[in-house]
């Protein structure tokens, strides 16, 4: 099975966000970037499917700045066979434009399975998998916690409100991965050395007209200063009093 894993380079999750002077993006000076956490589960699953089937290829695909080569090398070091970087200097927040660009690339480079993280932890818009699948005419299962493959059929488990769903589909499919699907491997020294010899194709992304535009980006309003009610269990009656009469929430 030929598998394409969609990866995004995002600010590390421990980043303190500062708004840039344009009021529409974040200050990137001093920010460390990494592979989107959910994409690590997608890459790991792709490698496991290839190992299980004993055949096929794993291609890591991203849209991002030239600097995203580092994340792509990491994907190669973990075991991807090939990496493709479509470059742009703009911040990719519009999943529809991303989906359209990736759909064009995937039409020219057919595969049977596209794996993605359930969302990117910067724009948090979790629209890419479904939007991409619609454009490709592929089946789609989102936010899976378990995934099994037998021949051309996938069986996945996903959480819904208060229950779990078992969903099936056949290739070709787009499947988005949730945390907990697997335990991603890290690159070892042999993988890191080997990655230098693997193909990393870099070309300019041909991004379409965006479906949305950023008006502003703001930090959330600061919360009013709270107070320490007291110490230990003795403070419980005062807390109940505050919740009931001050906050009026119980």
């Amino acid at each position: 099975m030929d598998i394409v894993v969609c990866i995004k380079r995002v600010p590390a999750t421990d980043t303190t966000i500062k708004i840039a002077a344009d009021g529409k993006s974040i200050e990137t000076t001093g920010v460390s970037f990494e592979m989107n956490a959910y994409d690590e589960f997608a890459l790991e699953q792709a490698l496991r499917i290839k190992e299980q089937l004993g055949t096929g290829t794993v291609t890591a695909l991203t849209i991002g700045p030239e600097l995203a080569q580092k994340v792509m090398r990491d994907a190669l070091a973990r075991g991807a066979d090939k990496a493709v970087l479509l470059t742009t200097d703009d911040w990719i927040y519009d999943g529809a434009a991303t989906a359209q660009t990736l759909a064009t690339w995937l039409a020219a480079n057919p595969c049977q399975l596209v794996l993605c993280g359930k969302q990117a932890v910067d724009s948090d818009n979790n629209q890419l998998p479904g939007n991409l699948a619609a454009r490709l005419g592929f089946a789609c299962i989102t936010e899976v916690n378990k995934l099994e493959v037998a021949d051309d059929t996938f069986t996945a488990e996903r959480d819904i409100e208060g229950a779990r769903e078992i969903v099936t589909c056949k290739t070709p499919a787009v499947i988005s991965c949730n945390k907990g699907l697997n335990e991603p491997r890290y690159a070892n020294l042999k993988g890191i050395m080997g990655a230098k010899k693997k193909p990393l194709e870099v070309s300019a992304a041909d991004l379409p007209t965006p479906a949305m535009e950023i008006v502003s980006l703001e930090l959330p309003p600061a919360r009013a200063e709270g107070r320490i009610i007291g110490e230990g269990a003795d403070a419980v009656p005062a807390l109940i009093e505050a919740l009931r009469n001050e906050a009026k929430v119980i």
Binding site: D94, G95, A96, A97, A99, D124, N125, N126, Q127, L128, P129, G130, N131, L132, A133, A134, R135, C140, T142, E143, R158, D159, I160, E161, E165, P210, A211, M212
Partner: peptide, 23 residues
């Protein structure tokens, strides 16, 4: 913005050749 909404509306938006703003 539920498990179904997150699954369904992105697909609807893709078929309509537009995007979705979530959450």
């Amino acid at each position: 913005h539920t498990a179904m909404g997150k699954d369904l509306l992105p697909r609807v938006s893709g078929l309509l050749d537009t995007g979705v703003i979530t959450d």
